[in-house]
Each structure stands twice: as C-alpha cells, then as structure tokens.
Design a protein around this nucleic acid. Structure first.
Lengths: 327, 327
DNA sequence: CTGAAAGCGCTTACAG
DNA sequence: CTGAAAGCGCTTACAG
C-alpha cells in the first residue's frame, strides 16, 4: 500500500508533525532528524498526497482550461503552451473540450468548481461563469468577452482583419468574400469581420459575408464554399477568419478548376505551426499563440495571488502577416 | 464564502449526515427532509467539494494523460477524443505535455501520483511508470510498449507501413526513402519502418532511412529533406511516418522545382482531420484515432474497476489508405 | 528543536 | 428515517 505520513513518522521514530516539517521545509529541524526522516521517505517510497494537502490549504494549484477542442490546431497549440507554462509555475491543468456547446460548458464549469480549481482559462463563450468570478475565482478569457470584470487576452484582431482585406484589395481583387464562424456573440475575433466590413466600405465595395454553421466540420466548410461559388461566381478574393476555412475553400476552388492565386486570392487566419508545415503556401495572419498563453497565465496568476484590482482588462497582442502564394 | 455541507445542514435544520445522504442518494430519507435539504442547497448555491470527497473515498476520478504535445495534430485530436470519452464516463483529465523529454515525464508522473489519479494514459515512452503499475495503478499505453504488463493500444502499424511502401513501388518508384522519427526505443510505430524495410528487401531494393532529430521542429524536418536531396538526388519516392514530415519534404521538393507526384511520389502517415483539411492532396495512412481512444479508455476503465487480469495486452486497430494526388 | 491536538469538508458504519 | 462520532492524509497554531 501507499505510504502515508504516519508510516514515515513511525519508521523514522518521530511525529507526523516533524515529517510534515521536513516535507515543507518549515520551522526548525535538527539536521539529524531531517536526515532520518528523509531516509525513511526514501525507503518507503513516500510522496505526499496532494488531495489531503489541497483540502487543508484550500488551494489546489489546479487550473481549468475550457476551450472548444484541441483537435483544432489553434487550440491544440494554445493548450500546449498554456499547459507548459502552468507546469513551469507549479500548476496542474484540468482540460475541458466544450465544442462550444453551452450545456457542456456549464457542466464543465461546475465540475471545475467542485474540484476546487484555483483559476480558469476560458476560450469559449461561457456566460454562466460570470457569477462565479464575483466569488473571487481567478478567471481569464482568451478571445472572449465574458463580462466587464473578466480580463481578456487576444491578438489584434481588427488589425489582422484590416491587413488581410487590404492585401486582397491591393492585389486587385474586385469581389472579396468573407468566410467567418457562425457568431451569435460579440467576441474580439469578431473584430476581424468588422475590419473587413470597414475596409470594404471604405473602398466602395459591398461586403459579402458567409458563415460556417458547424465550424469544426470539414463537410460544413466545403458546403459553404460550394454555396459561395454558386451565389457569387464572380468571387476573386476570400478572407477566411480561420486557416481551415481557407483550406477548405481552396480545395473546393481547385475542384472547380479555379486557379489560386490566378483567379482567386485567399488569405487565412491563425498561422499555427501546423498550418505553416502542412500548408506553407497559405497567406495568413499569424496570431502570437505563445505570447497569448503567457499573458493569460500572467494575469491569472496575479489573481490567484489575490490581486483582483489593477488587472489589465484588455490585452491585444500584435499579429503578423505571413505571405504565401495564395495571394 | 463557499457554502459547505454544515451550512446547508444548519439552513435546512438537519445534520450534515442527512445532507450527505440526499447528496449521494443513499439510505432512507423522507421526502419532506429531502425537499428541505434540496431547497437549502439551492438557496446557498451549494455544490460539494470533490477534494474532500476524493480524500475520503480514496478515488479521485482523475485520469492523467501524458503525451508529447497537443500541438501535433495527431495528439491534439487524440487528446480531444480521450478527454471527451473520459468526460462522458465521469472522469476528469489532467493533461501533461512531455515533449518526449524523460525528465519531464518523470516529474509529470510523480505529479499525477501525488494527485491521486485513478489511471494514466501514456503516449510517450516513460519507463519509470513500470514500477507504479505494479502498485495497481491503472495504466494503458498508446503506441508504446512500457512493459509486459501494460496494455498497449495502437493501430496496425505494420500493415500501414506495408501498404504505403507497396503503393510507392507499385506506382513505379525505384528509389524509395523512408523518413522516420528518431527512435531509440522499440515502439509499435517502429513497425512502420520494419514493414518498409521488409517490403523493400522483398522487392530487391535497398532501404534508405533518414531520421528527424527534433521531430516537432519544422526546421529540423526541412533540413533532413535537404540532406536527402543532396545525398540521394535519385529519390523518386518517399514514405514519411508522419504527415508533417511528408509535408515538409514536399515543401522542400517544390523549392527545388521537383514535381510531386510527377518526379517524386510521397505517402504520409496519420491522416488526421487537420491534415485532411489543410492538405487533402496528401496520400496517407489514416489511423482510427477515435477508436484508439475508445479502446484505451475501455481498457483503463476496466482496470480502475479492479480488473487487472484478463486484460487485452495488445490491441491493433485497422488503418486505411487515403489516396490523394501525391502518389 | 519536537509533539499532541484540532481541523480542512466530506462520508460511512453504527446507534437509535 | 435521522444523528453523533470517527476518520480520509495532511498542516498549522500552540505548547513545551
């Protein structure tokens, strides 16, 4: 059976209190005692039970991450960086893939709370979360507005949308279509769309917007591309707010014998490592995923240390244009 | 402050024992009492503390997942499926990205143990894990041999390697090169290489094997491609044991003006959703990720229920060939 | 420098 | 049908 603190104490001939002291390097202990205890711990292959510790300390060092799905390269990479940084700080990560489903999000949220997480990183639009934030639970959102009091970290979506749209227009596109996620909510990512609309209007062009209903479904992406070709055969430029949408559109274009970038130019969004490897030709707007993760955890950590005031409520990190050969 | 069971008891005018009973639906309770308690829980917005529960029950319902990195599409998708299935079964997932670094793996392992996980799913080659398995910790490996007693779930790697190599030869390739991960250990995935060697020899051809030193690094992948072109300019076929390697090789080929599949044919491996979206032209061997996840958790769950005998020690799921236009 | 006692928030025999 | 007591494995005042 697993050794407990009492077993170590008995074996070392001291009290559990003393064992706890050497474990936590706390208070005075004679070198001799410390050695005895350490020897006993080795022998019994003892390591502390963090569940018991958490219960007493009212601190779990657990961080919950709720996001749509790690299957998506952006979130897969974001998850890696988040977990990696958490780990280096001594935090452990409880992962939740909500698929953007409200009901799942709510159940995940309750699960995290029951498990006494010290903080939550939210990459989905969970609104129920608001209530809990007030109960001084540390929360930070990535690319989502949750409430006036929850800090949001994102990259400069407006600038990204602006650069993408302007590039297409500069390259001579007359009919630029936007392919975006279906969106009920006002999210920072929606600024990409806003920028597209602004730039189009500024150039005297009519914005044409299509939404992917099931954003993580390849089939759904292809169908929308198909509809675009039917309804707007004149399309000669596409700004997709997500690289996967861009790739699906291009696949559909090729199927129809359309040349990219000859007849249609395409710009994507995200610029993950995965996309840069699998589809390096794609012109896209790259988000600084690692920086976003760092910043999010920085803000979360501050809250977990009790600093709920003076939090930077909105952080916008710089994006970069990756020029490929699809424009 | 967070309501505790005592607060609910006081508010409902009963004992904590009774509250616990309605919480767990255990023993006899009068309907009237149950209602009183439920009303009090609602009012106080009470939900149980799972840390305290775990401590008493000696069961955390926590599952640790150790894998290289969710940044990689295969592992990103695998993680999604694993977590998703765990969630549906009432388990929670503690995520660990080890980057295949031994020291990180060992630290993660100890972390998981301290946190009293009920089971561990391992997608890396952690050897230290063996010792703990004997202490009746539930463990299942994905694509890794850990020891004679740890069940392994993988897809039919030999068959995949065979199909890929045979396809290239059938298509007329004379000089087929293998691009593989650097590999110290005997893993199921290594069977892809074994199959390649067998088929090459069977066809009277000399196997030519290159290894990517830093497998998650795009730069490293490109460098190996570069070396292949220098050392084997005659190369007209490539079997890459990973789609990212394949993509990097193709990028390097294009840079040199080589036509794929005209001058060089390429087959990858994994066939994730991400690859199918971003690089649908790639011919590749698709692993049944969802099935692998299901099977792994099935085996883990059985162990967590105390069934350590009669475990299927080796599971090999069927792969499929996805024919694209790179062959 | 070290230990006995109390308690973290629950659950479960055991009584009644 | 309900409650008082003990205990899960730790840690931390408080004494000495």
């Amino acid at each position: 059976m697993k050794a407990k603190i009492g077993d170590v104490a008995k074996s070392a001939g001291v009290s559990p209190t003393t064992v706890s002291r050497v474990l936590n390097d706390r208070g005075y202990i004679s070198d001799k005692t410390r050695e005895k205890v350490q020897k006993a711990m080795k022998e019994l292959n003892y390591f502390p039970n963090d569940v018991a510790r958490s219960l007493f300390k009212k601190r779990s060092n657990l961080i919950g991450i709720i996001l749509p799905t790690t299957s998506n390269p952006f979130f897969g990479e974001l998850t890696f960086h988040l977990e990696n940084i958490c780990n280096s700080l001594g935090y452990k990560v409880l992962l939740c893939n909500s698929l953007n489903q409200m009901d799942k999000e709510e159940r995940y949220l309750e699960m995290l709370l029951r498990n006494q997480v010290d903080g939550i990183i939210v990459g989905t639009h969970n609104q129920g979360i608001l209530d809990y934030h007030k109960q001084n639970l540390a929360i930070v959102a990535i690319d989502r507005y949750l409430s006036d009091t929850v800090p949001v970290v994102s990259s400069d979506n407006y600038e990204g949308g602006k650069i993408a749209t302007e590039l297409l227009i500069t390259e001579g596109c007359k009919h630029v279509v936007l392919i975006d996620s279906v969106g009920e909510l006002e999210t920072p990512a929606r600024l990409r769309r806003n920028a597209y609309v602004d730039i189009m209007l500024k150039n005297g062009k009519k914005p044409i917007i299509y939404e992917i209903p099931k954003i993580f479904d390849r089939q759904s992406q292809r169908e929308v591309a198909d509809i675009i070709f039917t309804e707007h055969p004149e399309v000669d430029g596409v700004f997709a707010t997500n690289d996967l949408f861009a790739a699906s559109f291009i696949a559909e274009a090729k199927k129809r014998g359309k040349d990219v970038p000859g007849q249609i130019k395409v710009v994507g969004y995200d610029g993950t490592e995965t996309v840069q490897t699998l589809f390096p030709e794609l012109t896209t707007i790259k988000q600084p995923i690692n920086l976003m993760a760092k910043k999010a955890i920085d803000i979360l950590d501050r809250q977990m240390e009790g600093e709920f005031n003076n939090l930077q409520l909105e952080t916008s990190l710089p994006i970069t244009l990756l020029r490929g050969s699809t424009t």
